[in-house]
Design a protein around this nucleic acid. Sequence first.
DNA 1: CTGTATCCATGGCGATACTG
DNA 2: CAGTATCGCCATGGATACAG
Lengths: 224, 224
Amino acid sequence: MSTYGQFCPVAKAMEVLDERWTMLVLRELLTGSRHFNELRRGVPKMSPALLSKRLRSLERVGVIRRSEADGRIRYTVTECGEELRPVVEAIGAWGVRWIGELGEEDLDPHLLMWDVQRTVPVEAWPRGRTVLAFRFTDVEPKVGRWWLCVTGDEVDICDYDPGYEVTGTIESTLRTMVEIWRGDQGWTQAMRSGSVTVDGPRTLTREVPRWLGQSTLAVVPRPA
Amino acid sequence: MSTYGQFCPVAKAMEVLDERWTMLVLRELLTGSRHFNELRRGVPKMSPALLSKRLRSLERVGVIRRSEADGRIRYTVTECGEELRPVVEAIGAWGVRWIGELGEEDLDPHLLMWDVQRTVPVEAWPRGRTVLAFRFTDVEPKVGRWWLCVTGDEVDICDYDPGYEVTGTIESTLRTMVEIWRGDQGWTQAMRSGSVTVDGPRTLTREVPRWLGQSTLAVVPRPA
DNA sequence: CTGTATCCATGGCGATACTG
DNA sequence: CAGTATCGCCATGGATACAG
């Protein structure tokens, strides 16, 4: 961790926070990830060695606590770490407002479906098993087909056909789905314009937007 | 500028903001610096080449605007940049609360006196010329003696004796003065304990704390 | 005053494989 | 599950000098 040689609190804070990946690890911790491999899912392009190193840094500074429970290692956010939530939120709000352009390389389907999976409002779904298939038309089939299975309170995401009867299929480009997730465009607009199509029972078109969540930053108003 | 390959707004924002020095340059811009060498005074340990590079990045993203006025180049914060103020403030507030320990290398007297100079509440000072001498006992004399001259609205800081009659002398370690500036400890406490001594007319002891400013983050309450 | 130009070393980080 | 180990690159950024 290199230093700035300044006593300014912003400088002292950034000595920790400006290291590559750190803020994203923090984001994961603050959204509830507590185990190593759980964190990895949120930052899949980060090497495990580096993640390990960052976790140590954060522990040293006092942002997280490392403990063992049930034979598993658990990382929990301390009070000090919890107070970084406003920082992460402020950065996110600024980012969603001012960094609108996404490169192709930002459009990671695994990340999107992982986000989708963990924000499914199960209470809005039917009680029995419901399977929603996703089809992204602009990426190679291997990462373009997903199945979201909701059974009671249980939510599963698969990148292979789990074999259950499919209730409906959502088709769009990956980019469109990401933009909807981020709140850059709305479901209704996208469906009306045809950039998203929902195949299945007629009622599904109305259900889908209520069955799927969005980024917490989607509600942030955009600059005029 | 390296990328994270994530569509998350936090990730997209950090692609810009996590580069070394960027947040400190931003801090300077948001506190009113508009010219290259003015910015340099705020980040003296940053090479001019790198500062130039960062300014270009920030301009490309839309955070600042580069313009020419009176034959000088001027950097102004855009609306996009202005909206980073909450981010910088949140980071500063967290930093002053949780990163208390300062290394010797953080104690830069030039930076401190530059800060002191630009936050002098001139209206609290006498109308005529007043000169306050600073003496830091724990650093080499070359950077341990300073003269703060306030004449009407004009404030000057010198690292050499300007020759005017000295109204009073403040003596302490550099560390103590930095801590007072940051709000880690109060003037009254420091003077009572003897870690700061004020030499001059008897009233000066009461005047000095009102003549000198503090970091804007000094008022942030500290963790119990 | 406002930067550029150049050079060089470092070490951060990415990639991959492997382990208790 | 939760990391280590190793390796090697190249880009970052520090230093210095110089220019319009």
